[in-house]
Design a protein around this nucleic acid. Structure first.
Lengths: 207, 207
DNA sequence: GTCTATAAGCAGATAGAC
DNA sequence: GTCTATCTGCTTATAGAC
């Protein structure tokens, strides 16, 4: 019992590292077994098939990212603080699992239905609260009018893309791993300001 | 001669569709052959191996995206127009090849050296010109001080992420393909404004 | 150049001993 | 529960006819 539970999570963690790195198609059961220091047969004993093992990893991955990050969007918070909270939650989670965004993004492409199913099962509705809040802010003239969808895209893009396309951005900027991490830490403190800049009314337009 | 050239490009286009959709590991030579309405043997006759065929596709993909998009960053243009030109170039190119960004991003992860090699071969330096321009703008007080790296990340993120994570964003927003395309067209007109907002000096801070 | 047929190797999955 | 050994099918790649 105890033994089985630890082996199961041992496998899960090994599978996670491999799947995160290589995706479903690129991963080999043998490599996962090696990573867990066991043999292939045990993988099948615990998870029956590669697909089921992957599903378990994907489910765990989504569970690790979405709840902490999306839940803040529903909090009773002024927009300004909500944005900061979101960015903080995102960077905290993702800096601990740098391959998570790329992994999810790739699976999004490989099997769109998979993610949809997970979202549907969790009854996630990110936009509902945001829509109201943005609408109110626009009515009272505090914030510029913007659709919740575009706002969400902006927020997600600024946070996620630097992780998703990390290798490309490092290649273009010539930064090594350490320097790029510093860049990311800097972003963490800057993004919420930028997002608010985009929301500022255009009244005092330059020129 | 003529025959071989058309077959070669027939294969290349078929391979592109399949590789774009499934990535290197997920693609099957058989499926590419079917897509081109030929047989597997011909693929090897023309490209010798799956890997070489993929390289050809990747090279072509990078060639289609980077030059038109990055070249505008070197033009002798005021920052304001440069940003608009970049966004226009990006959306024009990518709306014609919607899977291009996801394909490149995935390959970035699968084989980082591959992209580095392509960049190095082309002697691409995006930041050089930008650095100067941003520095000047900051000195003269027109624009806020920001590193060229963060600026590039912002611009790229806002443009690329909506394509890269399209399936996820559609799932979260509940938009269908058509509605999402409209959203993208709207972004095309909005992004440069947002990027400029992020550059506005903070002097007239709200509250 | 293009095809059919086949080789060679590998990956996922199972059988069965311990 | 964990292992070794093995099966089965698929995938890339080649041989060779036309």
């Amino acid at each position: 019992m105890k033994k089985s539970s630890t082996t199961e999570s041992l496998i899960l963690h090994a599978a996670e590292r491999i799947f995160f790195l290589r995706g479903f198609d690129g991963a080999r059961m043998q490599e996962i077994a090696d990573e867990a220091s066991i043999n292939k047969a045990l993988l099948h004993y615990y998870f029956r098939s590669k697909e089921r093992l992957f599903d378990a990893v994907f489910e765990a991955a989504v569970s690790r990212l979405l709840p902490p990050v999306l839940s803040v969007l529903h909090l009773e918070l002024p927009l300004r603080e909500k944005i900061t909270a979101f960015v903080e939650a995102y960077f905290t989670t993702v800096l601990e699992n740098p391959f998570l965004p790329g992994f999810i993004v790739h699976e999004l492409q490989r099997n769109p239905a998979h993610f949809r199913a997970v979202i549907a099962a969790r009854r996630i509705d990110v936009l509902e609260t945001l829509k109201m809040q943005l609408h109110e802010g626009a009515e009272s003239g505090i914030w510029r009018r913007i659709s919740a969808e575009q706002f969400m895209l902006n927020l997600f893009s600024l946070c996620a893309f630097p992780f998703v396309a990390r290798q490309g951005m490092q290649a273009l900027s010539g930064k090594n791993d350490h320097e790029y991490l510093l860049l990311l830490e800097e972003r963490r403190t800057l993004i919420s300001g930028w997002v608010l800049d985009m929301l500022r009314p255009e009244t005092v337009n330059v020129k």
